[in-house]
Nucleic acid binder design. Structure first.
Lengths: 211, 211
DNA sequence: ACATGCTTTGAGCATATGCTCAACTTACCA
DNA sequence: TGGTAAGTTGAGCATATGCTCAAAGCATGT
């Protein structure tokens, strides 16, 4: 026999609940924060029993890490798809704005911030979160170097440090937007970044002439 | 009678306990995070009874807000004292580096980050935190405008938005340093900022000539 | 139809937390 | 010296949380 057709097979049910729990974990992390991300709260939002958290993930912490993995994977896909078409600083800024807007809308940035902030209260979680953040930072470095790779601006600043600052700015904007309740300040900043992009390119030429 | 001399009077004992609890709250927020800032944990670090939290502050949340007030006041004092001597962009950058270093060392920045991140899990805490953050942002605006007030760079960017970004960068760096365990990346960024400061001043002139 | 192996359920246990309260200590004053 | 008020203590209550477990539900192979 191949398939019944009407009812879902065990493997599909299992996968569905896992997906629902991970999505609910992201949702609760965004709206209730790390301290509010309990097994019962997550299961309630996924509309399933709280015991399933432990059956499928073993512990609440593992579920939260799975949610972080999901967010990281989604971000990596976005970055990889968009990064190939970037060549100038203006294009890079426009890309960063677009990706960050998507991250804000989807709540992925909030998941990251809450996990980092909450890592302090759970021993061992800090290291786990850290290694899941590393590729993220690597992408920021790659994005910067793909644009600034041959620019004289790299003789003044270090791309790894700038990438670190970009990630920090990203997290800080999310943190503040979470407090303000709306994303207007971040959006206003984006329009400024757009205006500043050609100036940075100009700055590259400026530095070259000075040397 | 004026004073016994050897033993502490009730008012002094009360003030001492309040101070100890507030300091312990900052300490616990920094090392254990918002989720770990419980009445027993804070009282334990202050080496006093947990009931004193509720006798002196009424609730854990009020104690955490008092800790946030303490941190905000300490920051305001640092800023006000240092801001008067600032006139150039380089001096402003040097001042920001100094103040931020102090905030990192004292753990004040961590207190702020944890309170913002934790505000999501407690209804009503968000608004209380927000109004305690506002003066902070105002200071960033004032610092920027005291330097850029007559610079042509303000014709391209808005000082309020730049201040918002500066605060976001500040919070994000603290968040990342909390994860990394050391403050080396932030410090390395500071040296870059120092190198970039004269370039920003140069940029001001550049923009002026272009107009 | 029946047995088998996943998946799901809800009750339940040990522990932790916010907060209360009556009893105790301490400094002050008449 | 005794009384009063402020400050402190530890037990205790109601609730919430992480996690376990025996029982039930369900799709599948024979």
């Amino acid at each position: 026999m191949v398939r019944t057709g009407s009812a879902r097979r065990p493997a599909e049910r299992s996968a569905d609940t896992r997906r629902a729990l991970v999505a609910a974990a992201c949702d609760v992390l965004r709206t209730e924060g790390f301290a509010g991300a309990t097994a019962r709260a997550i299961a309630g939002r996924a509309e399933c029993n709280q015991g399933l958290v432990f059956y499928h993930f073993g512990s609440v912490m593992n579920l939260l890490l799975a949610a972080l993995d999901e967010v990281s994977a989604r971000r990596r896909d976005r970055y990889e798809a968009a990064l190939e078409s970037v060549e100038t600083t203006s294009e890079l800024v426009a890309l960063a704005i677009q990706v960050f807007s998507e991250d804000l809308d989807s709540g992925d940035a909030a998941v990251l911030v809450e996990m980092i902030a909450g890592a302090a209260s759970t021993p061992g979680l800090g290291a786990a979160v850290k290694e899941r953040i590393a590729p993220w930072n690597d992408f920021a470095v790659a994005a910067l170097e793909s644009v600034l790779g041959r620019s004289p601006i790299l003789q003044v600043v270090d791309s790894a440090e700038v990438a670190h600052a970009v990630v920090a700015l990203y997290l800080g904007l999310e943190l503040l937007s979470h407090l303000d309740g709306d994303r207007a300040p971040a959006m206003a900043l984006f329009s400024q970044a757009r205006r500043l992009a050609p100036i940075v390119e100009l700055l590259g030429g400026q530095l070259k002439e000075e040397r």
